[in-house]
Design a protein around this nucleic acid. Structure first.
Lengths: 208, 208
DNA sequence: TTCCTTTTTGGCCCTCGGTGTCATTAAGTA
DNA sequence: TACTTAATGACACCGAGGGCCAAAAAGGAA
């Protein structure tokens, strides 16, 4: 899962000259989430996060391009995993099934990671500034889906169908997440399945 | 169409006491778009827009809650129209058809309005800050679709299916718009139809 | 050890979007 | 003319973000 923090302070090949990074990405994220939980996202200043993490404000901005990026954690790594999952999918599996499986895999959670992921997603989906910023993250996610869909169908990623599949896959995932946050009981995979099943019924099994 | 500027300076019932508004919303929008076209959105400061419109910076912020809202024009009016269209749709029309017709109506353009609307959408869909801000506008649009879908299906607007229909309808519309901006030839209604047809084929007419 | 090089760090200062406050101005009414 | 109400915009302030650069912390070479 993309939200799981893994990886060291830096992946620079050891043996390099110069000062070694002393900044711990995980520590920044933890400090930030602690502050967000207490004071809320908008009310927490970047200065406060930097101070809580024991680093300079300028250093924080060297690790995160913006305050809005902090709650996203290692999202890029998650995208790479998503790409790899799709690349490894056998070609005899229909495209829509391949994409759905990839979405399920992308959003798979270990039991222990659920509470933190809930908190992260609650923050991302209910904070206006983050709802807005998320559009940029979503665009990269959609591109992964669109690229795969285009390749499987022999189209360009800029054609209509791949783009539509990207948008619609994201839409289903987001509606499942919103539902997941609203209800205590349902599981995320079940909601992702239900979103797809509901959409198919809505679009395809009604009188035209 | 929501993008068409109509309506007067203010809709306050005449006969009210106090100074009458001297600010012309249309003039602000025109001045802003002129600057955006020349310098780009990010490079145009709010001060520059206010000066070009001949008003104070503070006054501009009284008419637009943020710089990002300027390119959206009278979007709220468009939402009201969308709601009215759906309310007026006969109940014997299947939900998915009603929604699709509403989307077509919402995005209907008079021939003469096409160039300006292209420019507006190009700005909204290619400027990162606006892509992000759009998420908030889209949420309101989705809510209209979700509310209608919920009512027709006898569900709560917070149930999974209405939310999914909202997200997916938006996704199709956005992929159609992206395609529309990329190509010179295709018409917007044709692309909206094609997005829906493509999705149905992708999801429903393939081996399970 | 001392110098030299490389890289991280963070301090300083600036720009710009956005907001609260408040005096001023332009209306209508008594 | 005096009073009320509403729009305007000047001023001051805050926070995000970025450019610049000097100080720190590593390595290797003399």
């Amino acid at each position: 899962m993309w939200s799981t923090f893994r990886g060291m302070v830096s992946s620079r090949p050891r043996q390099a000259p110069g000062r070694r990074p002393a900044t711990d990405l995980g520590a920044i994220e933890r400090a930030a989430f602690r502050l967000f939980a207490v004071r809320g996202f908008e009310e927490t200043t970047v200065d406060a996060i930097a101070e809580a993490a024991g680093i300079g404000r300028r250093t924080l901005f060297r690790y995160y391009p913006s305050k809005n990026d902090i709650p996203w954690g290692q999202f890029e790594a998650g995208l790479a995993h998503l790409r790899a999952f799709l690349r490894a999918t056998p070609l005899d599996i229909p495209v829509h099934r391949a994409v759905h499986q990839a979405v399920l895999d992308f959003n798979h959670l270990d039991e222990a990671a659920i509470p933190q992921h809930r908190e992260r997603m609650r923050l991302l989906l209910t904070t206006p500034a983050l709802q807005a910023h998320s559009a940029l993250k979503y665009a990269a996610w959609r591109a992964v889906i669109a690229d795969y869909t285009a390749e499987r169908y022999g189209l360009s990623p800029h054609d209509l169908l791949p783009r539509t599949v990207g948008h619609v896959s994201l839409g289903m995932a987001l509606s499942a997440y919103e539902q997941w946050l609203d209800t205590e009981d349902a599981s995320l995979p079940a909601l992702l399945d239900a979103a797809l099943a509901g959409l198919r019924h809505h679009l395809c099994e009604e009188p035209a």
